[in-house]
Amino acid sequence: MTEKIIIAGEGGQGIMLLGKVLAEAAMLEGRFVTWLPSYGAEVRGGTAHCMVIVSDEQIGSPYIKQADSAIIMNNPSFERFKDRVQKKGLIIANSSLVPPPQESGRRFVFHPFTSLAIGAGNIKVANMVAIGCFIRITGLVKKESVLKVIQAHTPAGRQEVGEVNKRALAEGMALA
């Protein structure tokens, strides 16, 4: 089984981290993973994306031409990447910033990740809400693996940061 995921949004939304958390969780489960960032001159405010592949086999190119799924956090990214997801693929999008599309065909899941993150206590954890939603639907990695990754990335003595991320993950998992 190989899952190719495009994760996109704007700089400052924690897009790179979102991809890394997914990839690290898959690593903890013994899978092959690659993570490839867009590495242009994007800084805060510009669009940013990364590509994550999780597989049971060695992975060839880390670049994804056609994705199995996508996590989209803002509207410019939705316009840019929606057609890069295969016809039967899944697109999880942040309805706080992406208006629901007219077209049908692909599997669209829209939830207000940004609003939910504000509710959870920090706008920055919209990425964790999205991960929760994504893993609940796809079952790509276990919740416990993601929790381990969050714990590992929580700075020493800043347990409250870890807690808000965990809350956001739980919020996301409750959505689907």
């Binding site: 890394k20 990839a23 690593m27 092959f32 690659t34 993570w35 590495y39 880390p62 670049y63």
Partner: peptide, 10 residues
């Protein structure tokens, strides 16, 4: 190449 430098693997 740039891809090898940028990509992450285990």
């Amino acid at each position: 190449d740039g891809m090898l430098g940028q990509m992450m693997e285990v």
